[in-house]
Design a protein around this nucleic acid. Structure first.
Length: 420
RNA sequence: GUGGGUGUAGCUCAGUUGGCAGAGCGCCAGGUUGUGGUCCUGGAUGUCGUGGGUUCAAGUCCCAUCACUCACCCCA
């Protein structure tokens, strides 16, 4: 076979793929319980939506987008993140005119053209949640708590929450200018100098030791927040504390996207290779206007499904759950028995019992081998003799005990035994 | 975009100074024609990543290339 998954991508295959499903379920369950509705937007959008929404100055837009021209000459981009699309959909359908906040969540694939490494691929999967139309610290706190709840429900104990505030349109410009003054005086390479002019906050996030060493005396956002931002941030912190959500203040925490204001947070984990974030988000009060909408404050997060699976594995929580396994495995001898077994399995499944059978005309030995490997608790064996007796052999695969059960009682018997 | 490492069976890998392509696991079959796991026996599976070069002879040496992987940058 000459094909393989495209460069920088990978396949989720059983049994490991069960973990990806478990993460999606675990992260979405809390938000669903909190009244967030499911939205599904196209996997691609007008390129300009991301250019304006995510920000021209970001690496995502400047070099990591999968952009192409469609047959109608439109510039199309595979979504590199979920917030811009979600806000676009909310505005397009007028949710901002309905009850606020508009609370929505999503789950899907995202794309960034990057060199792959552990925890970072060209195709990745996120679960996200957004609350739009209301500026209320309780909403920021709710979202953060819901994500923390999701991680906890997976059994993860190594996820840490970092919290910061980036200020607002009133106080950020002054801070930005102060930071630029500081950064311009440093000894930096050309790329970083350019970043100082475009997006100085991101320089604080540089991991290189030679850069880090110079950032010691950098002005911090927290010292430049206006009264409104300070009060807002204090309220978020206090609500989180009351809710029992542990967090660490990190005045250096910035995010890669241009639209963030005020509350910014990141969930980090140490088991992700060189990556650190399993999820992150924040408030983005100016995003709607950036993409041509009315003023519409918002707050949200996205959790990396693949990275969360890595975190699970790093914590030894990747125990093989029921990976597509079944409870009952059918083995038939002869065509007539096989037809009967086929129908019996359908009945079992309708009764809520998971069931599989031997396919491909294997002999009894081979079929029993299949029963063993399926991980089933019981095998149901039907041969000519059983057929004549109107019964089937029900075998406990762990103990090896086997007994004939009348065909009419098979479903109820198995269901009973399995729910004990 | 930059740098390091690795490419041999489905998987994990061995392969000596260049000399017949290997092991374990898995898979299939039989031992047991109505019974799985353990055990025994047998079997199938290879573009040695790809292309070129050196050589009587290349998995092994040389060059190029591709892929994977880890890291930088950046981010979920």
């Amino acid at each position: 076979m000459s094909f393989q998954a495209p460069k920088g991508t990978f396949d989720w295959m059983p049994p490991r793929s069960e973990l990806a499903l478990a993460v999606r379920d675990a992260m979405s369950a809390p938000v669903r319980r909190a009244g967030y509705g499911y939205v599904e937007t196209p996997t691609f959008e007008d390129t300009a939506l991301f250019a304006r929404g995510v920000g021209e100055s970001t690496d995502i837009v400047s070099k990591e987008m999968y952009t192409f021209e469609d047959k109608g000459g439109r510039s199309i981009t595979l979504r590199p993140e979920g917030t811009a699309s979600t806000v676009r959909a909310v505005l397009q359908h007028g949710l901002q005119n309905g009850p606020l906040p508009a609370k929505v969540w999503y789950s899907g694939s995202f794309f960034r053209y990057e060199r792959a490494q552990k925890g970072r691929y060209r195709h990745f999967s996120q679960v996200g949640a957004e609350a739009l139309g209301v500026e209320d610290p309780a909403l920021d706190a709710e979202l953060i708590q819901l994500a923390a709840e999701g991680f906890a429900s997976l059994g993860l104990t190594g996820v840490r929450l970092l919290l910061n505030s980036l200020g607002c349109a009133a106080c950020r410009p002054a801070y930005r200018a102060a930071l630029q003054d500081f950064l311009r005086a440093l000894d930096l390479d050309d790329a970083t100098r350019a970043r100082v002019e475009l997006n100085p906050l991101r320089v604080l996030d540089d991991k290189r030791p030679e850069v880090r060493a110079q950032l010691g005396g950098a002005p911090l956002v927290t010292d430049h927040l206006c009264e409104a931002c300070k009060g807002y941030h204090e309220e978020v912190r206090s609500l989180l504390t009351d809710a029992g959500v542990a967090f660490a203040d990190d005045p250096r925490l910035v995010r890669g996207l241009d639209y963030y204001t005020r509350t910014t947070f990141e969930f980090v984990h140490d088991g992700l290779g060189s990556q650190s974030a399993v999820g992150g988000g924040g408030r983005y009060d100016g995003l709607s206007e950036m993409i041509g909408g009315p003023p519409l404050p918002g707050v949200g997060w996205a959790i990396g499904v693949d990275r969360t699976v890595l975190a699970l594995e790093a914590e030894g929580l990747a125990a093989p759950r029921s990976s597509g396994g079944v409870q009952v495995y059918g083995v038939a001898l002869g065509d007539e028995a096989r037809r009967l077994l086929f129908s019996l399995l359908i009945e079992l499944r309708r009764a809520g019992v998971t069931a599989d059978m031997a396919f491909g005309g294997k002999g009894l030995k081979g079929a029993m081998k299949g029963a063993d490997r399926s991980g089933a608790t019981y095998a149901v064996i039907i041969g000519e003799r059983d057929l004549a007796a109107g019964a089937a052999q029900v075998k406990d695969l762990a103990s090896g005990e086997q007994a004939a059960v009348p065909l009419a009682e098979i479903v109820t018997t198995l269901k009973e035994r399995l729910t004990q």
